[in-house]
Amino acid sequence: MESNKEYFYPLWLRIWHWLNALLFLLLIFTGVNMQYANPKSPIIEFHTAVTLHNVSGITLTLNYLFFFILNFVSGNFKQYIPKFKNFISNLVLQAKYYLNGIFKNEDHPFETSKDQKFNPLQQFTYLQIMYAVLPIMVISGWALLFPEVLIKQIFGISGLTLTDIVHTIGAFFLSIFMIGHIYLATTGNTVLSNFKAMVTGWHLSHEEEAESQIFSTEEVSNEN
């Protein structure tokens, strides 16, 4: 069994990723504190939560722009574009692995490489999170920061309420995503190897001997 290392994650990506992770945690924590504000058991004071949420949100916007530009310039955005060929069957294949193969110590169905860091399920999810949900969160967040710019009534419902519901639902999905993301990150070579890779940038994989499958791949795949 031969170990080899590949430099998967450049510095800018790692900085963006961990800052994004920190801001996610702060935003979820302060957001939940506001949504479920309770005068009897304040974990963090409402006023502090609001300020922290606003500051984190603004920082997240800048961080997102940083990601958006560098992801484009570096060409890394191509990683996010799913292949149309066998799109559904590839998703099913990956899902089947998580639901079944993983317990039988089967290999990850898709080979990961520098040019193909994400499996189809990751591509599908990350594309939506990074290019749909996060922009919606940023835009609705800024709208809530300047509520006077909002449309007063949309189909008889207050524009503010509607924006808030969109923001809250988006936040909920991002929270669910974050939990799933962290869990699936443990399905690497070892439980911690993907986390280490995201810190050092070096993705550790080890090639196995003769493999008959077309998608012969490593036991390792960067899941996240």
């Binding site: 506001m34 949504q35 479920y36 504000a37 409402f46 609001v50 207050s158 503010l160 309420t161 808030d164 519901i165 809250t168 639902i169 909920f172 929270s175 669910i176 939990i179 799933g180």
Partner: peptide
């Protein structure tokens, strides 16, 4: 009528979110 952070909670969305969260 309006939107008050902390007080405006949609009962059904709230319940649904707890259920989904629990299942996940």
């Amino acid at each position: 009528n309006s939107y008050v952070i902390g007080a405006t909670r949609n009962y059904y969305l709230n319940l649904l979110s707890f259920i989904i969260f629990g299942i996940v």
